[in-house]
Each structure stands twice: as structure tokens, then as C-alpha cells.
Design a protein around this nucleic acid. Structure first.
Ligand SMILES: [Mn+2]
Ligand SMILES: [Mn+2]
Ligand SMILES: [Zn+2]
Ligand SMILES: [Zn+2]
Lengths: 150, 150
DNA sequence: TTATCTTTTGCAACATTGTTGCTTTTTTGC
DNA sequence: GCAAAAAAGCAACAATGTTGCAAAAGATAA
């Protein structure tokens, strides 16, 4: 028998897809579920691996693209030139993301977290510059990797 | 006759390379000069183009790597998965970068600027997280693209 | 300046990542 | 179930990045 959480996540995945007017397909269900089961963010490569040999690489690319467009997931810029993706928790939708939170990359375990409660600060820019979106990525040691005596 | 600024930049480039204990080669001189002549940041591809067909792609990759290692240039993370590089203005050196400034990417012209005078803010993290380095990238409209009446 | 040693370059081959057009398969709405 | 629409898979390709190695260029000291 399937584990109960898997079923819950499958239902949740289907709900999320329907909410966004997307048709329900195996790959979309599976990829949304991966995000739901996951604490941190996922890179394209992670998804390919975690989904097994099940889906074509192109399908994964296109699925992620659709999810970003619809405001289901957002991208996280990192220094190592690999885009990570994470679920949008805010009221993002088609054509407008509102993820104004800080991201954290752990030096030790490599996991990327959305710190949903830490909002991006106001940045005072020099004269002539107009700010749109602000991205903040903090690198350091995460709560799971913290040693008791450090 | 060569333009005077070119000569100045060549001397400056040589000085910078010597300072960092690097041997003086055509490609290193040329690439440092490109950075000196440039207001914004450069991506790998920009450098290949601007250097003409002069240098091998591999040489450019390796040169940029050496420059980053030596603290001559630093990388700038961007959302579009393309690493940009810019000269370090601070006291960076081999094995330690100290570029704590904000970066700005113009939506309109695409140029990436180092805002050397805008320092990265302190970020208050949730319990258990320890901050190392903080990266801030602001996206918006730059001083050159600003229209008079906006 | 030349000889020698060391470093860097260019080349070739390869790996990884991302893109596009087209055909087949799946999903949806009836 | 059936037809139309959407998505997936496949193949071919483009772009980007990496590695090993031989040739060339740079540094050093006689
Ligand atoms: Mn996030
Ligand atoms: Mn900078
Ligand atoms: Zn960690
Ligand atoms: Zn601009």
C-alpha cells in the first residue's frame, strides 16, 4: 500500500494544477509532488534524478517553464550558475510573482531554503537608479547543519 | 598611433597582473584591459566577442578562473543563469574576496553594475541559521536608461 | 642574449546543459 | 467513446563548460 503522505501529496498536486488551469499529466503531478515533499529548493538536475528515468529531459524543462510562468514555482539565483526552483508560497499567479523573501544556501549540505518570513530589505540606491525587484541570497550554515556547540 | 587611454590601461593591466604574481601574457593583458575600459560587468561570452577571434575559449575560461582565485575579479549571480564578472575594487586577494556591495542589473539595457558604495545590509535570519556572505542583486532601471520625466 | 625551466596557450575531444521542430501519445470536454 | 487540443517523447542541434596533452611563450639566471 502507498504511504498516506504520498496520497495526500498527490491530491494536493492535482488541486494545485487544477487551480492554475493546467491539465493533469503524470510528469506534472510527479514534479509538483517532488516540490511538496521537499524542504529545500530543487535544481533541474535534482528533478531528473528524483523522478527516476521516467521523464524526458525536455519534458522537465518545459514543465518547469510552465510552472514558473503560472506562478507555481519561482527561481532562485545562485553564485554557481545553477538555477534552483522552489514552490511559491505567496499569492503568485500567471505573469506576476510576489516572492519577496530571502534565500539561504547552506555551505555544508548545499541545500537552498526559502526563508519565507525574512522579507527582502529596502535598498537605498544612488541617484538615478530605480529599483524593481530585489534578490537576496545568504550563504552560510543552516539549522540542520549547525553543531550543538557552535 | 595608439590612443593614450589604451596605453594607460595597458600599463595599469600589467601593474595589476604583476601585483598578483601573475605572468604577463597577451590574453591576460587583453582581458584585464577589457575590464578596465568597461563600466559594467562582463560575461564570459562578452569577453570572447570583445577580444575578437584572438583567444581560445578555453583560455578565456582559465583566465577568468585565475583572476577570480587571485581576487582580481569577482562573480555576480544573476537570475538568468549567466555569471557576470567585474573588477574587485576592494582589498580582495588570493583566497579571500571582500566585495560587500550591491549589484544592479538594468532591465532596459541589460548592463550589470557594481554599486561599490552601496553595502549589503545585515539580514536577520531565523534561529539556527548562521550567515556567511550576503549577495544582493537589484533589478530595475539604471541611471543611463532613466528617462528625463520618469 | 641565450639556454633552460616553468607556465600558459591552443587544440581536440568530450560532457553537460538547454533549445527547437515534429510526430506520437495523452488528456480533456463533449 | 470520440474528436480536438495539449503535452510528451524523440532527434537533432546549439551553447556552454571541462580535461589531457603537445606546442608556444614567458620568466629566470647564467
Ligand atoms: Mn523562495
Ligand atoms: Mn561587484
Ligand atoms: Zn545545511
Ligand atoms: Zn540601463
Amino acid at each position: 500500500m502507498q504511504k498516506e503522505t504520498t496520497i495526500i501529496n498527490e491530491n494536493q498536486a492535482i488541486r494545485l494544477l487544477k487551480q492554475n488551469g493546467l491539465s493533469i499529466t503524470d510528469s506534472r503531478k510527479k514534479i509538483v509532488q517532488l516540490f511538496l515533499e521537499q524542504d529545500g529548493a530543487l535544481a533541474h538536475g535534482d528533478i531528473e534524478k528524483k523522478a527516476g528515468e521516467k521523464f524526458d529531459r525536455v519534458t522537465v524543462y518545459r514543465t518547469l517553464q510552465v510552472f514558473v510562468d503560472k506562478g507555481i514555482i519561482h527561481t532562485i539565483p545562485t553564485a554557481d550558475n545553477s538555477i534552483r526552483y522552489a514552490l511559491c508560497k505567496d499569492d503568485c499567479g500567471e505573469g506576476h510573482h510576489h516572492d519577496h523573501h530571502v534565500h539561504f544556501v547552506c555551505d555544508n549540505c548545499g541545500v537552498t531554503y526559502c526563508l519565507d518570513d525574512v522579507v527582502t530589505p529596502e535598498i537605498k540606491l544612488p541617484k538615478g537608479y530605480t529599483a524593481g525587484h530585489v534578490e537576496v541570497v545568504v550563504e552560510g550554515v543552516c539549522k540542520n547543519c549547525k553543531t550543538p556547540f557552535s
